[in-house]
Design a binder for these strands. Structure first.
Length: 592
RNA sequence: GGUCCCGUAGCUCAGCUGGAUAGAGCAACUGCCUUCUAAGCAGUAGGUCUUUGGUUCGAAUCCAAACGGGAUCACCA
């Protein structure tokens, strides 16, 4: 039983003893900083049923608690707020549990498995900042779910075919002159992206020419020669034309090599990768099933539809009249494939909120088809990363490239570290490792601290900070503590929790209180699919530790018990920070 | 036009299962390194929580409308 639930029980007892009233549930909130106490009970709600003033109710309950509760030391009442302080012995006992808990914060296996699909890149262009948000969210979510007891399967569905891929293939065919990543000294994904942009340039030129000849914008877009050629390439690909497939395979190999380099750099990986070229024909049997179950219906042109107006959605096409699939057909098939492959209890898709409608439709159809797993499908919808100039568009080249940004962050980390001059004894490989840790710490934290559901802004003019509410701030706090721990070890000071009579410093109580909140935060993060909860917690814990660090001397205290305790407390905070950072995919450096 | 999301300090964001004088960080200004890492700490300044109604003892938080921004409503993915 947690201290918080004991306190709630005691408050219930107090209310029953003093007012003969039985309450179902007591709601406690953390006491605001400017008041004394750690837990606050709000008594306004009781004024009506008790016909007493809020202050009087608070006083009565507070007095009862101090006299009868084993854990309450003191209280104060401000208007309807009863602020409660706990005995130091209680804080010490809480801390003792935390310090002795190997995997503090994590839950035992719950027998549930969950699939997290994320990243899902297109093979016609390199990753950009928006993909980074997706990757970091998916990766962090997987870690958070794992620590909450789920078995997690990380998957990636690669969009490796389709008209957009044919566009870069065509431009390469026409303008490439056999260029290779080696010859161009370009990562393969960047090479493909270059031709994707070139396609768009030429295509626009052709549209403009046609419009000048009197075509409408719409006609021109359909009739532009390169568009017709790209479509022809797609047909050839679908027919298995050798030369086309060879070109497709060659360019994709280049792109995968580029992606893998990026994934490795940012520390993201998958348990299973699905390729759309393998799955794009799936789903047609589900269409048959839907027709026979009369979930779907045919129109005169032979196209197949589903009526979702009862669900508040529209009629939706699920198969073209010529029998070819659309996006939703493939996704139906792929979801069924994932289920057959893994039989997970839950399925998550980390996909931008521009596809909210698509997923509503997908889940509604699965439900109509009687798929029990449809109830456990969730779209983890996240907001776009916008630039001050608006949305990022790969075609138009208005993107913040992932590789460039990471490289730039590493450079900034190196400059900053060298200015501070704290690691002059590092081997160069150690230094490089630290720059990487700091760069990714800053970048990942920047993207993960914001509520995933909200869109966010990135201003390339202002570089991502290394000070204040940032990843490096938290990493720095960890490194600081590690320095303390090393010093303690060198001086043979052992970490020790003192006996119940020890008088705590206020900064120590606050640290223990914050530590005690960790498990709750991790559970909330899993429940709400929000790594930002872990991010904010890690920042607050680090901040509270830094306050403690500035206020209290660890080694200079004349009381050896205090020294040992503060070493123990520091160690627990370091482990908690390290764990929280790990959940964000951020490494905690020993020194910086 | 229908549906959905969003609007909090100059900027980027917390807070939103209703509760105390609305919080951080950045930017600005003041202090603090002969003592455990100053990538830090302490402080000053900065807000009609878009607006207007409603519910309530109490609203940034819930409801409605208006205004502003975004997404989506493709036989693209």
């Amino acid at each position: 039983m947690t201290t918080e639930s004991i306190l709630k029980e005691d408050i219930k007892k107090a209310i029953f003893a003093e007012f003969q009233l039985t309450l179902e549930d007591i709601v406690l909130q953390p006491t605001k900083k400017e008041f004394e106490g750690f837990y606050t009970f709000v008594s306004f709600a009781l004024t009506k049923s008790l016909k007493k003033a809020p202050v009087q109710i608070g006083q009565t309950i507070g007095t009862y608690l101090v006299e009868n509760s084993d854990i309450v030391s003191d209280f104060n009442v401000v208007q309807g707020f009863l602020n409660i302080s706990l005995k130091d012995s209680v804080w010490l006992s809480i801390f003792n549990d935390i310090a002795n808990h190997e995997q503090f914060g994590s839950s035992p296996a719950n027998g549930q498995s969950v699939m997290v699909e994320f990243s899902s890149p297109n093979t016609n262009k390199p990753l950009h900042l928006g993909h980074l948000r997706n990757n970091f969210l998916g990766d962090s979510l997987a870690r958070i779910l794992k620590t909450n007891g789920y078995e997690v399967v990380k998957t990636c569905l690669v969009n490796d075919r389709g008209i957009h891929i044919c566009k870069s293939m065509l431009a390469y065919q026409e303008l490439g002159n056999g260029e290779t990543p080696q010859a161009a000294n370009l990562k393969g994904d960047h090479l493909a992206g270059k031709y994707y942009v070139l396609f768009d340039k030429e295509y626009k030129k052709q549209i403009k020419a046609l419009v000048e000849q009197g075509k409408t914008e719409e006609e021109a877009a359909k009739e532009a020669p390169w568009m017709l050629q790209a479509q022809k390439l797609l047909r050839l690909w679908e027919q298995g034309d050798q030369a086309t497939v060879d070109l497709w395979r060659k360019m994709n190999e280049w792109v995968y090599a580029g992606f893998n380099e990026t994934y490795q750099k940012i520390g993201v990986n998958f348990d299973k990768t699905y390729f759309e070229s393998d799955t794009y024909l799936l789903g047609k049997d589900l269409i048959e099933e839907g027709l026979s179950k009369q979930v779907f219906f045919k129109k005169a042109d032979n196209s197949v539809w589903v009526d979702l107006t009862a669900e508040g959605l529209d009629e939706k096409l699920v198969l073209r009249g010529d029998g070819t699939s659309v996006y939703i057909t493939q996704d139906l098939g792929t979801t069924e494939l994932k289920y057959n492959d893994y039989h997970n209890n839950r399925y998550l898709w980390v996909v931008g909120n521009e596809q909210d409608y698509h997923f509503k439709v997908l889940f509604a159809i699965l439900k109509k088809l009687g798929r029990s797993y449809s109830e456990e499908c969730h779209h983890i919808s996240y907001g776009m990363v916008d630039l001050p100039t608006g949305k990022m568009k790969s075609r138009e080249g208005t993107v913040v490239d992932a590789d460039d940004l990471v490289a730039q962050m590493i450079q900034t980390a190196a400059n900053r570290t060298q200015e501070l001059g704290k690691i002059e004894d590092f081997e160069s490989t150690e230094a490089v490792q630290l720059y990487n840790q700091l760069a990714l710490g800053a970048l990942k934290y920047f993207l993960l601290k914001v509520d995933p559901k909200k869109r966010m802004l990135f201003n390339p003019e202002e570089s991502i900070d290394f000070q204040g509410h940032t990843g490096p701030f938290i990493q720095y706090t960890f490194a600081r503590i590690r320095s303390i721990i090393r010093k303690a070890e060198a001086s043979s000071i052992t970490a020790q929790v003192p006996g119940p009579t020890y008088q705590l410093h206020q900064a120590e109580r606050e640290l223990i209180f914050f530590l005690s909140q960790y498990p709750m935060k991790i559970q909330a993060a899993a429940q709400e699919f929000a790594p930002s909860i872990v991010s904010l917690y890690a920042f607050e814990l680090a901040k509270v530790y830094n306050q403690f660090y500035a206020e209290v001397s660890i080694f200079a205290d004349p009381n050896p018990q205090a020294v040992q305790f503060r070493v123990a407390l520091s160690g627990a905070v370091a482990r908690c920070i390290e764990n929280a950072l790990m959940l964000l995919g951020i490494e905690a450096p020993e020194r910086m």
